[in-house]
């Protein structure tokens, strides 16, 4: 059984497309990235998965529970961290977290609340309305993990957190993942995906355009090439070379294709110097977005 499954899931708002025919699964214990530009459909997919939106067609399940027909059982095992944090302003963080614990039927949650608040340096007895956005986000993180869920769904999780707290948050995720918790991580910050995820899906205009292992994406995709030739020469570039710019004997271009082809081609040139830059994930996904 997979932790999360999407089966041809579509959501339309009237004539407007939210997501269309989403079809993939996330294995138990996996840390799965969900990447796409703003408006691509990331939040629509997550909201449909959590029962906030009704699917137009298709289905989705969490730990084998259909999110429409067995929404309660599905959500019982899920911790959700929304991108925008809106809590009851009249409550303190402690009251909110106790309220959350009550809704999950947790009777003795105080100790765990104290531990997590200490870990994230959150003042529990201040009204939520008085908290900074970063502190509200910490409160949101605590409520997402407090009931020890089996699946964590994180939508742009680090917004508002300072780098120190982001690091603590990632450490917490890593420790939870080691205990078997599945993490579904939606973000447009690719360095986070690169750090945390095993695989990632790319969504663009409501459709999944790629599902890849992060390591394979990093290894087989585009390389930036900068080379200096002994003399000014007009280069004959084979397939896979793009964005070529030259100034005198200096050439810059991108290469997408097998590495051995690139090495063979370089060996044929009259080189003074060559620099191959390892692509960052951002360049790779920009490549996907533009397809």
């Amino acid at each position: 059984m997979n932790a999360i499954e999407f089966h041809s899931l579509s959501k339309f708002y009237g004539k407007h497309r939210g997501i269309e025919g989403i079809d993939f699964s996330v294995s138990k214990g996996e840390v799965f990235g969900f990447i796409g530009p703003n408006g691509a459909g990331k939040s629509t997919a997550i909201r449909t998965l959590l029962g906030l939106l009704h699917p137009s067609s298709g289905s989705a399940s969490i730990l084998g529970h259909d999110v429409v027909k067995e929404g309660v059982q599905a959500r019982l095992k899920v911790g959700y961290l929304p991108s925008e944090v809106d809590f009851y302003p009249e409550m303190t963080s402690r009251e909110l977290l106790e309220y959350h614990a009550g809704l999950y039927g947790i009777e003795k949650g105080e100790k765990r609340i104290e531990e997590l608040a200490q870990y994230f340096e959150l003042a529990l007895d201040r009204p939520i309305d008085d908290l900074s956005y970063g502190n509200k986000k910490k409160c949101a993180i605590i409520q997402a993990v407090l009931h020890e869920p089996e699946v964590l769904i994180l939508d742009e999780p680090t917004g508002g957190l300072d780098p120190f707290m982001q690091n603590r948050f990632f450490e917490l995720l890593e420790s939870l993942n080691k205990k078997g918790v599945t993490v579904f991580f939606s973000s447009h910050i690719l360095s986070e995906i690169q750090r945390m995820c095993d695989r990632a899906a790319v969504i663009r205009e409501g459709k999944i355009t790629a599902i890849e292992d992060i390591s394979s994406l990093l290894s087989k995709q585009m390389k930036k090439v900068r080379l200096v030739l002994k003399k000014e020469t007009k280069l004959s570039l084979p397939d896979g070379f793009q964005n070529h710019h030259s100034t005198g004997s200096k050439h810059n271009f991108d290469y997408v294709g097998p590495t051995e082809v690139l090495i063979r081609w370089l060996a044929e040139q009259d080189l003074v110097d060559v620099v191959l830059t390892e692509p960052d994930l951002e360049s790779i996904f920009m490549n996907y977005y533009q397809r």
């Binding site: 959590l50 029962g51 906030l52 929404g71 309660v72 059982q73 959500r75 019982l76 899920v78 959700y80 929304p82 925008e84 809106d86 809590f87 009851y88 302003p89 959350h100 809704l103 999950y104 409520q143």
Partner: peptide
């Protein structure tokens, strides 16, 4: 209106 529906409706209760 206050944005708290997202919190409430993602708890393990039916609508």
């Amino acid at each position: 209106r206050d944005g708290t529906a997202e919190f409430l409706l993602t708890r393990p209760m039916t609508r």
